[in-house]
Design a protein around this nucleic acid. Structure first.
Lengths: 352, 352
DNA sequence: CTGAAAGCGCTAACAG
DNA sequence: CTGTTAGCGCTTTCAG
């Protein structure tokens, strides 16, 4: 294996100079730089990760992790817990991670106007070397941090993509594909003839739901002309909405006796599944949901209350953003891609 | 973060002594040892991986990877390629991996009597620090290596479990669960009423097939009393068998007009799927297969020739055994479990 | 039985 | 602009 020392020797310079050239830091005479680059190339130099990892401690990197903290979104709790655990592993590289929990429950209309003083208070004085931010908040945080005079630190967005300027990467699933996958499952369950009711606990304007519905509809058009979406219901995720949700779904099933597949985008409260089973005892409705994060949800898949769940690796959504930042800042490894897709998996009773 | 140096300082000894105590190597006076252990514990010492990784280079570890080399088993090619790639990453830790390809095509009855001279020639003079061995060959290799006078090196078995004495770990899927999963899918596809034909290109005596069939049958018994297994056919994987296979399956479908789910354990030649589609044009047969490793197979899932494929992470089966050995030998990390289960995933046209 | 020292590959800080 | 030095945490080797 060829080391930086070998290159230095061969080029007749010091290791420091080689390091400077390979990292474009400091000034080196053009001829020397060129020579060093050529030699490194010829010898097939590959930096040693262990060496870098060890030396990285001197950088005392600080990362910020911004997440959603709410008892109504257990999915984000899983992300948070995974990130927390990975942060501990990063400690040995001298990296410290600060967690910023945003609590939507405390502010009505949270996602719509989050350029509020709370955010300013939270972020204006934070100097971080890198940020991992849950989508839809990327730009807000970027602006808040920059306004407070700090230079631009790299940002990785997760869960929901957002058009943040110069973001380092995005980690999350392909929601359109998720919708397509749901359609493929509906087709399998009904020999390509599903009558589908789509339901979600959100006002229908959030990106993920729109993308999933669009994916589902595209797949119907392209591949399963006999599948029909007979009803769509969106109930907003508020106290009132949560109370009404089950009833709305019940009414939908009553109104459309031909529904044989229920596609739950964001059930919010999963007890709606149990309701469907009781109410539809004489009917055969298949339930497809998204995500599986609590024991209770898993249990429902195991016992058949939910037929199929489509999952998107929440753990990875917590870990990967930090990993990308660490690789970039500590080890000098650029992200391989701008979009790290988390896998869409199909879970049924036998593989939850 | 607490280092070995901190402990040494606090205990009033040298770093070398601390190292000896923490690794039970060399002799240290009992009182000192006890004291050091206590202090390490109190201070919550966690070894630094980067440091160990760097120091590991001096060990010049040698690992052996034994795999199956045959154009009839693309699954094992994927394992091999993944292992090969990971081996390259290990180079920077001073680890060299030697690959031993066993070619069953060259020997009839290969798996039954592989205590032959070929193996002896291949392994008798190999001194390795650790072995990763495909299941069903673990013991043979262990014996061959030991007979040739080499002391016992740790062995990790992969793909198929085997009762190797003192093996360090096994990496592979739960084949019984794989069979259960297939049954769960058959149930979904047919509203719990499947009439199933089970087919495989092996003589029915190999472990994985037996386990899958057993899992399927158990699930039928426990959960889906209305599912029936109406036929089972095993055709041995020989030249003759491969030629006959498609026809045998065709005959089975003709004989049992009620079959609506075909469960292909090891199709060998996937063209059988296309045959079923042509032959059964007027009939609605759903095909469930295992594993998805070639582009051709993926294409069949995409275009609906295969309805569902159950996969078992072949890449991981190549990488993980080497990773376990590396962690154990180079970093001193014991395997967390004796059985590293690879995940069983459900693939359909929308998530291949 | 134990301490001291060297070195794994890389980076940062300092001195010219 | 460039070379030297020190050190990240751990292991191994060499003396004693």
């Amino acid at each position: 294996m060829v080391t930086i020392k070998d290159i230095a020797q061969r080029a007749g310079v010091s290791r420091g100079t080689v390091d400077r050239v390979l990292h474009d830091r400091g000034k080196v005479s053009p001829q020397k730089a060129e020579k060093i680059r050529r030699i490194a190339d010829e010898m097939g130099y590959q930096p040693n990760i262990a060496g870098r990892g060890l030396a990285a401690r001197k950088k005392h990197l600080k990362l910020g992790f911004v997440y959603i903290k709410s008892e109504h979104t257990p999915f984000h709790s899983v992300i948070y817990e995974s990130a927390k655990q990975y942060a501990q592993e990063l400690e040995q590289y001298g990296v410290s991670v600060t967690f910023f929990g945003l609590e939507p429950d405390k502010y009505s209309g949270f996602f719509k106007d989050c350029g509020n003083p709370m955010l300013y208070n939270m972020f204006h004085s934070q100097k971080m070397d890198g940020w991992a931010v849950v989508g839809t908040l990327g730009n807000v945080i970027k602006q808040t941090v920059e306004e407070s005079g700090s230079e631009t630190a790299p940002i990785v967005v997760y869960n929901m993509d957002e058009d943040v300027e110069n973001k380092l990467a995005f980690v999350g699933c392909d929601y359109v594909q998720s919708g397509r996958l749901a359609c493929g499952i509906a087709a399998l369950l009904t020999k390509n003839r599903a009558h589908v009711g789509i339901v979600s606990m959100d006002d229908g304007s959030i990106q993920s739901s729109m993308a999933r519905v669009a994916g589902f509809e595209t797949e119907v058009k392209e591949r399963y002309p006999q599948i029909q979406i007979v009803a769509k219901h969106f109930v907003e995720n508020s106290k009132k909405g949560r109370e009404e949700f089950s009833m709305k779904v019940y009414q939908m099933l009553e109104e459309h006796k031909d529904i044989d597949v229920l596609y739950l985008l964001n059930p919010g409260d999963y007890s709606v599944c149990q309701m469907v089973r009781r109410a539809g005892a004489t009917r055969d409705v298949r339930i497809i949901t998204n995500d599986l994060v609590t024991d209770w949800q898993r249990e429902m898949v195991k016992n058949g209350t939910i037929d199929v769940a489509i999952c998107q690796e929440p753990e990875k959504q917590g870990v990967k953003p930090l990993e990308i930042l660490f690789n970039y800042l500590a080890l000098g490894i650029e992200p391989e891609t701008l979009w790290y897709k988390t896998e869409l998996s199909v879970r049924i009773g036998q593989n939850v």
